[in-house]
């Protein structure tokens, strides 16, 4: 029996800071935004964290398909900014959406691809008929050290996917993963900000893993890029997904609907899943979507997705990704620093 996405929901905080404002503070070149193809990024409110934005995204997913939360048998939450080192994010999300307590839950961490790993775990349980519905979440309020290159992109956002077998909005036709031990980006226990290998995060990290997972899935599915109407690649900045799409034979038109990083930044575990949601917001039944996440450390999960008739019934029942681009509130660097806890009181 086919399995896939029964519903989806996203949440992006309303605050933004412009890349040019960060560049101004640190004396960087004014064309930093153009170079990164990231013009602004989302910033969480004082009282928002990876849990609260995961709850908002999940409530949107539940609302979109009018799901009875008691049907959810598993909650897997991917994030690299879980507020607790020990105490699951998923339990708080579950309680906030009113689940029946007969479920399993665990938190995942794999840099920016923990959310797609959660989708795979849910898909396994659903396909094996062990649960009715699984909830997979990618959520992050990511951190970049002041003045570091990451500060231009490290943003906040969450995406939640309900994975099941019935009333599908989109079928997951297959997936393929590629994983190696590549230390391109890391954060040690107790450290507030991550470290990274600079340019090493590019070729040996992002490009090697995304291209390997993509080519692996195309071979497994016996498909070519032209078989897909849309493609979404992980978006650490606005350059990498555009370049990797070109290398792999996907066109700019295929990636355009899901390319959201120029306006919200890199939402880490939420990134590729928010890109997928933005694509589902516009895709028609029968169309196919290619998705490839990337997580430093490093690995990539690629998915082949076919949009089903059910998408038309549910699409307009919850906020779409681009709805969160409206009515945003811009912060200067000083208020941004206060929001992000960069100022010690």
């Amino acid at each position: 029996m086919p399995a896939g996405i029964v519903s989806y929901g996203v949440y992006i905080p309303k605050y933004r800071i412009r890349a040019e404002e960060i560049a101004r503070v640190w004396g960087e070149r004014e064309d930093m935004a153009q170079n990164l193809n990231v013009f602004e990024k989302s910033v969480p409110d004082f009282d928002e964290d990876a849990v609260t934005i995961a709850v908002e995204a999940t409530r949107n997913a539940v609302k979109r398909a009018s799901i009875d939360s008691a049907r959810i048998g598993a909650i897997y939450t991917g994030s690299e900014s879980h507020p607790y080192a020990v105490k699951p994010t998923g339990t708080i999300v579950g309680e906030a959406i009113g689940v029946d307590h007969e479920l399993t839950a665990a938190d995942f961490e794999f840099a920016c691809k923990a959310g797609t790993a959660a989708v795979q775990a849910c898909l396994g349980l659903v396909t094996a008929n062990l649960i009715d519905l699984g909830l997979a979440i990618g959520t992050d309020t990511s951190q970049g050290a002041p003045g570091d290159a990451l500060e231009y992109t490290a943003a906040a956002g969450a995406a939640a996917y309900l994975i099941g077998r019935e009333n599908l909005a989109a079928e997951i036709e297959g997936f393929y993963s590629f994983t190696t031990d590549t230390p391109d980006f890391w954060r040690r226990e107790g450290m507030p900000y991550p470290e990274h290998g600079g340019r090493f995060t590019g070729e040996p990290g992002y490009f090697k893993h995304v291209t390997s997972a993509t080519r692996g899935l195309l071979k497994k599915m016996k498909t070519i890029p032209e078989d897909y109407d849309y493609a979404v690649f992980h978006q650490p900045n606005g350059k990498f997904p555009v370049r990797v799409a070109g290398q792999l034979g996907f066109s700019r038109d295929q990636i355009e609907p899901g390319l959201v990083v120029p306006w919200i930044g890199n939402t880490y575990s939420g990134s590729s899943l928010i890109g997928l949601a933005a694509t589902l917001d516009v895709a028609r039944p029968g169309e196919r979507i290619f998705l490839a996440s990337f997580g430093s450390g490093a690995g990539s999960d690629a998915f082949s997705i076919r949009v089903c008739d059910g998408i038309e019934d549910i699409r307009d029942r919850a906020p779409k990704v681009r709805d969160y681009f409206e009515n945003v509130q811009y912060l200067d660097y000083a208020v941004y620093a206060k929001h992000k806890g960069k100022l010690r009181l």
Partner: peptide, 16 residues
């Protein structure tokens, strides 16, 4: 909306 209501310092629980 779902938010953090408070925290018990740096080591205690987070109230949502």
């Amino acid at each position: 909306v779902f938010r953090i209501l408070g925290k018990e310092g740096d080591r205690g629980i987070i109230y949502y």
